[in-house]
Design a protein around this nucleic acid. Sequence first.
DNA 1: GCCATTGTGGACCGCGTCGTCCACAACGGT
DNA 2: ACCGTTGTGGACGACGCGGTCCACAATGGC
Lengths: 230, 230
Amino acid sequence: MERIVKYWYPRGMARPREFDEAAVLDAAREQFWLKGYAATSMDAIAAATGLGKGSLYGAFGGKQQLFLRIFDGYCARLTDAVTSGLTGPDEQAYVRLCAHIRATAAAVAADSRHRGCLLAKSVAELSEHDPEITVRSRRTLDGIAVTLADDIRAAQRHRDLDPAADADRLALLVVAVLRGIEALGKAGIGADLVEGVAETAIALLPRVDTTREADEAPCPDAMARNATHP
Amino acid sequence: MERIVKYWYPRGMARPREFDEAAVLDAAREQFWLKGYAATSMDAIAAATGLGKGSLYGAFGGKQQLFLRIFDGYCARLTDAVTSGLTGPDEQAYVRLCAHIRATAAAVAADSRHRGCLLAKSVAELSEHDPEITVRSRRTLDGIAVTLADDIRAAQRHRDLDPAADADRLALLVVAVLRGIEALGKAGIGADLVEGVAETAIALLPRVDTTREADEAPCPDAMARNATHP
DNA sequence: GCCATTGTGGACCGCGTCGTCCACAACGGT
DNA sequence: ACCGTTGTGGACGACGCGGTCCACAATGGC
């Protein structure tokens, strides 16, 4: 109802913020990550950030909006991390893929406190009743799948993966495996087993098919075809 | 502090319960499943079951104990369902395995309200701070993996799966894929894509190796080897 | 120095939470 | 018919919740 007149500018600059927004978001994310959405109180966030509730609500507008903002930031970081780990020259596309799978498993295995992934936790808790969370998580996983598919296609071009495989479908399967590894870690599966899952998955990736009867594929040599990765 | 004297028996039978315990547990489970642990109030459960809070606390002892009991029952049912779906003669072991993967994906795909799996939801919310949940979920997933491994071994005996594969590791990978499919469903991935993941996973299972240079394997044909399912 | 504006922090409100308590009901043995 | 025991259900208490409000601080233009 206020600020009806648009042709107007302040008669003086207002009081500047005294807190670092990024730091506050970090602290708040830690709270949500630790306890979950429902079990995290705004008072706890106020205490963790050192802000008064007035500042908190003034700056972020409420629990849902604050969480959604944090969630968005997390999704963006996750997407960026995956993208930066999976882009590069075709020659190393397959290595990058394996490394990414192994790195995910290693991260889960090293997470002794079973903190897990904020996206997974939030989706499990809120997705059913909050379409905002659902659509964001879907977009994030879709983006990861696209990135994976691009890398898989690169590996196919370089003949490290079977060009006959459907890169998009294979990418989504890899996403499923990665989310499954995350779920296994939260359930307390041992670190060695988690990393074993990653190795088994890598071993099952469709390498170049060297055994075609007399197909179209111009595959001269049959070098370097190990179904099991060393 | 009471009941000091052990040599004693009631002077008369006490008032019998007026509610069906199983039905109450069902209704309570529905509440926890719908909203999650933290966001479910005992008053809501009382309302849903029709019990007064006195009866509720008297019969189950509190929120945590009630939930743990429900969780245990859910895990047991889940284990039983998987076991009953994956045991049988060796000749159909491979078919059972594929059917189970497909059935899981189909269930996720058909779950339009993204209700998901109570075990997954509970583990995501509580595992970090409640070792009871962690150990139970670990036991449940371990049991599923064992059942899968047994079925895989049966399929290997029947030469539907490569006997060279490590059944235990492969089983855990399948568990990971199944949990990943569940996670994808909660994130709002489309039904067709979810079922595509299942098909891709099935297509990547290590079938008998028909391409050994001159090995022992008596596998004549190399038909039906599509990385992508039709 | 005054002003309008925005940031700050803590008191405060209404409500929902978990768990307890207690008067009462339904039993079977005596 | 009485009694001890257990089940019942709703009132109750203490507390924590999300969110608002408001007196006050800090700022830059005038």
